[in-house]
Design a protein around this nucleic acid. Structure first.
Lengths: 208, 208
DNA sequence: GGTGTTGAAGCACGTTCGTGCTAAAAAATA
DNA sequence: TATTTTTTAGCACGAACGTGCTTCAACACC
């Protein structure tokens, strides 16, 4: 029939163009014309794969969520595979939490895009569902991590939830600072903050 | 000479209109026309007080920084006025940290506007200087708080800095979650997370 | 009371946006 | 080779944007 083209691959190429534009110029510059230019296509071509601008943005949001959630999941299974309390497990935990931070180019792009979409979802209702999914996916991983790391002594369920939310907030804040104030929040500072937080988790059992 | 009008008061009215628009519709909707409508003025009138759109945004950013920094400063002096370790000081600390969070309508508007400008500053160079000032002002207060709350035992300077950055990141993450996922991050959850963090500061001296 | 400075309002221009729609190009099938 | 269908490209329209510039009303001062 037609010119054979892998539609799914094309969509991913367009999404990659969206990511690059958001990371460098912000979400508000991710218009159809800009995206088409960045992807080396015409506006009509992009609109052939995505019915509307909202469609493109929602799909892109979903794509970055899948990427991040996938990284977190695999890093979490690596943590669970290590012996409890071993230094190898400690390293795996640091690796897991590092997936939140813009420590290399790819992670930085994803972090930019993720932050931009989550903040945009406060205003644009079309993004709300994906924002919910994003929060659930990340909270699930962090919850498992907290259950693993918390002292075995009897812990109130509420305390565990609060500790999970605390770690989640710290990671998001750390990511935010690393993106917005990279001169202050360096990779070393991130590492220091992370180790301090993990020590506070292990050393100060939050017995309610 | 002319029609007497308190120019500074007028500017503040326009800035308030900017705040309302950003809080409800996002920063990208804070155009001259929208702001003029919200303030009950004409575009030309707004431009009489602000030379350009960028001028208006930079001034508004500065205004929200001053408001937040002012609240933090007064709350910090209240903390320093209480007896060290007293429960009154504990309450004053909770009050100080609560100034970061959208716990009432006014705080919520400021938090929205503050977040929006800080993220926009990553892209728009005109906002960069104010973003720097914002970071310095808040970091200074949090630094003083950490020095006050840390156990008196000999602490490495680096550890204190890391603890300050950790508290700052946690507060920003908490604020972000309270704004973006208010159903999950309720006021009670904020309180639980804050008390857990303060306990980890006092109970687990981060001796390097 | 005239006069000149200033607040307020609005027009006009060029740019960018999303989107409906049409037309050409390209490749697999008849 | 002719046809059919997907892919690509492009035009046109209305809306919204920032901004330069002009116009009008109002009030303090001579």
């Amino acid at each position: 029939m037609p010119k054979i083209v892998d539609a799914e691959a094309r969509r991913q190429e367009v999404v990659q163009a969206v990511f690059r534009i958001i990371a460098s110029d912000g979400l508000e510059r991710a218009s159809l014309r800009e995206v088409a230019d960045e992807a080396g296509l015409a506006v009509g071509s992009v609109r052939h794969y995505f019915a509307s601008s909202d469609d493109l943005l929602v799909f892109s949001f979903g794509a970055v969520i899948d990427r991040i959630a996938g990284r977190l999941e695999s890093a979490m299974t690596a943590v669970e595979a290590e012996r409890q309390g071993s230094s190898a497990q400690q390293a795996a935990v640091l690796n897991l939490l590092g997936q939140f931070l813009p420590l290399d180019e790819e992670l930085a792009v994803d972090a930019c895009v993720w932050m931009a979409f989550r903040h945009a979802a406060r205003i644009k209702p079309v993004l709300a569902a994906e924002a919910e999914r994003s929060h659930r996916a990340v909270a699930a991983v962090v919850g498992r991590l907290i259950m693993l790391l918390s002292p075995q002594e009897a812990e109130a369920q509420q305390t565990l939830v609060a500790e999970a939310e605390r770690l989640l907030a710290t990671m998001d804040g750390l990511c935010m600072h690393a993106l917005l104030q990279p001169e202050w929040m360096t990779a070393e500072m991130c590492s220091d903050v992370l180790t301090a937080h993990l020590r506070s988790l292990a050393g100060a059992p939050a017995s309610s």
